[in-house]
Design a protein around this nucleic acid. Sequence first.
DNA 1: CGCGGGTTTGATGATGCTCAAGCCCGGTGG
DNA 2: CCACCGGGCTTGAGCATCATCAAACCCGCG
Lengths: 193, 193
Amino acid sequence: MHEQIIQSIKSRVEISDQDAEMLKRYFIPKKVRKRQYILNAGDICQYMAFVEKGFLRSFSVEENGNEHVIQFAMEGRWISDLASFFSEVNAVYNIEALEDCELLLLTKSALDEMVGQFPQVERYFRILMQEHIITLENRIGYAHSYTAEEKYLKLMKVHPTIIQRSPQQYIASYLGITPETLSRIRKQLSSKK
Amino acid sequence: MHEQIIQSIKSRVEISDQDAEMLKRYFIPKKVRKRQYILNAGDICQYMAFVEKGFLRSFSVEENGNEHVIQFAMEGRWISDLASFFSEVNAVYNIEALEDCELLLLTKSALDEMVGQFPQVERYFRILMQEHIITLENRIGYAHSYTAEEKYLKLMKVHPTIIQRSPQQYIASYLGITPETLSRIRKQLSSKK
DNA sequence: CGCGGGTTTGATGATGCTCAAGCCCGGTGG
DNA sequence: CCACCGGGCTTGAGCATCATCAAACCCGCG
């Protein structure tokens, strides 16, 4: 149940097998089924969730009902509403399982204990955050300079698994385009080939 | 010369005055003049730069010459090309001073030493990265759901100083719109009032 | 078999881009 | 001190991309 998280940590910082073993007890294993929400907007986000298995999305909902997919998370990735988790304000995002999932949940107090106990873990999270920043910066770059088609092609190239695993409408939302536009783009691409 | 950085750290983690004093020596003070570049795309980014005084922007340039402003940084903020800095790959961003600046530069080895020596500093950077992620996530949200006018109004509300200090064309680029569109929006807004 | 959500297809229209020209203003040199 | 650049901002006209609204279609599931 903890293979992925151990690997996620070991690939970023040096850590002994014993310590790795110790870390496991900070996590709360949780299985959730497809369509289940692990966070509702308005609640306080209690956990950072690490994905051992499965696939999820985080998204916001505007007053008019429009959804905006912020992030997808699959095996080996974290997902959360960081602003809510760290500052204990109401979450603006929902998080929904798009497949049956096996998660490892980390509460704020568990995280604090853990990073206090293991400096390498503090480092792990810093590195993780840095990596996340880089991907977010790239996304902003794409959002500004690419056409709808270019954004889709880029996603196909960089994260083909997202396209395989996510319903199309969520991919459209993630890219900031409408489902109709995405459908037309796909049609066009398939006829070109 | 180090007031801002000390305050930036103290506002996020507990640290003694002595330790704070010790930290100063890790930074390289540097003055740069308006228009000067502290990073050119293609180079390896050697520093994270903390702004004690002044105002800068980071931006990418496409093959066709189009610029895209990624970030503005003013007093109390950090700016860098993190992907290049941490992974020692070629930078994709340029960083240019938009005003005369007083910076504190931090090399990778200085950072590593510092976080090894002071666990609170490791924590400081983790928190910093988290905060940055939250702002980037918000920006992606805006980019997807807001019109050009809404994005501008939001920026006016959240970062009025950027609007006061940056040339308009860079603001447009930051928002992902053309200078012409921004000009028209401003005209419209002023006539409405 | 029929329902329903998701995807596709079509028609129309708005937002914002492109290209082009003019304007404003600060800086430079005669 | 004034004339003349030149960059940035403004204004205008036409157009492309993409959103919206609406309807049909597809397919899995009860």
